[in-house]
Nucleic acid binder design. Sequence first.
RNA 1: CGGGGCGUAGCGCAGUUGGUAGCGCGCCUGGUUUGGGACCAGGAGGUCGUGAGUUCGAAUCCCACCGCCCCGACCA
Length: 501
Amino acid sequence: MPDHAISPTRAQDYPEWYQQVVRAADLAEQSPVRGCMVIKPHGYAVWERMQGILDRMFKETGHQNAYFPLFIPLSYLEKEAQHVEGFAKECAVVTHHRLELGPDGKLIPTGKLEEPLVVRPTSETIIGAMYAKWIQSWRDLPVLINQWANVVRWEMRPRLFLRTSEFLWQEGHTAHATKEEAVEETLRMLDVYATFAERDLAMPVIRGPKTAGERFPGAVDTYSIEALMQDGKALQAGTSHFLGQNFAKAQEIKFASQTGQEEYCWTTSWGVSTRLIGAVIMTHADDDGLVLPPRIAPAQIVILPIHRTDEEREAVLACCRQLAADLAATRFGDEPLRVKIDSRDMRGGDKVWQHVKQGVPLRVEIGPRDLAAGAVSVSRRDRGPKERVSMPLAQFVAEAPTLLAELQAGLFEKARAFRDERSVRLDSQAEVLDFFAETGDKAGRSGFAHVHVADDPAVTALLDPLKVTVRCIPMDGPDEPGTCIVTGKPVSRRSVLARAY
RNA sequence: CGGGGCGUAGCGCAGUUGGUAGCGCGCCUGGUUUGGGACCAGGAGGUCGUGAGUUCGAAUCCCACCGCCCCGACCA
């Protein structure tokens, strides 16, 4: 057996490594439908963890869930000009509503629709149409709604979790009486995403507004959280849009103000998707497979009974059940510990490696020797796959939450250290060209470049050939005035440049 | 949609002067093992991506289509 569970390693072939991790961890696989994935139970369990935490955060910030249709009348998308431009090309369109059996046994679509239906690429238009009916008075505001849904974007180059034709996400859509309130909402949700990414996914992110070219079609401002993956490429992990009155005007979302004036609403939308699973993989996974931060791990601890004879089996299993019960009575991150006993009848080595590849944070082995000593053998996913530490059973129960907290914090620190190591401040075009050079030592080893650039086509012209984009203009930390390295225009802070997924 | 590569057992692959399918891992059974991705023996599993063609005969040759991967344009 090779040194690593995953082949090739990250260093050998990063894109292939990614796919092998997804497969080895049994997260998802390609479906017979082009560009669409099947999310398998383990992958879906991770998504459910993310959903659970985010949903609670949305509710805590005053939002309610609702559900809107999968199909959007074509005419709805035509209303907002910029929006059409952004989405028109990549949509699935339903044109027929019946199938008839042809003479050759083939099914033929018939029953042409009067108006084609677009499978939602995002739901601003259909939700806006409903808001227009629901909102009459300032007393109806704000409207704070989220929906968990699937959307379809006919992407040219799909990749499991990162870019699939259909993906799962949540989309929040809010309407407000004032600009200030809507902007505040936009930033509040950006903050929710950043907190979730850093606290739960252990993934450091940079947040900030996008440049004009990178904006969501129809938005006044788009904010994103950006994370750095292990291959030095950036991943946009969540977005929050201030839509101004653009959609409200296009869709007649109006209300009577306190002074009796008819006014347009100010709206926002914000979303994160199953792409976050890809983000977790590319942030934490190693050459032995997935590494799950404890807070989003479906099982935080797996207990592995080791036994030979039937008598041993009984005694060991009894001990495992007791341990599982004791751990489940303990709390980590405001929730009971999630523990699983894996008593499947298979070779121990295989079983251990499965859990390694699936990213379970803690593995606990209990065999006759441990039983006799009143001890357990503990392995951490952030250490070598063969490392084990023996400790008294009672001590493990007491310290399990601390161990998990340590693991969670350790993953974050490691990711942050990696990001810092791959982050530079550059002050000239030459330095930028050198940093993103694709030859020599630097091949594929780029990262975040903090640079003074203006929001200007001349900047894009410089970056395009490098396949580099302005990810966002970081909003944390103080202003740092400077001049654009391309145009010489004064700018108040540095932007983050990177290659991106 | 453009350029390149590739589709043979669940996975990884071999199989070119065209002769009717194999290896490793995995899976099932039995045995020996056992704090570690074991060993031995036996077994199951494939209309060789799909369709049409050349041929007595096609996984091998020709054509079309579909899909996957990498590089672009697009993108949560």
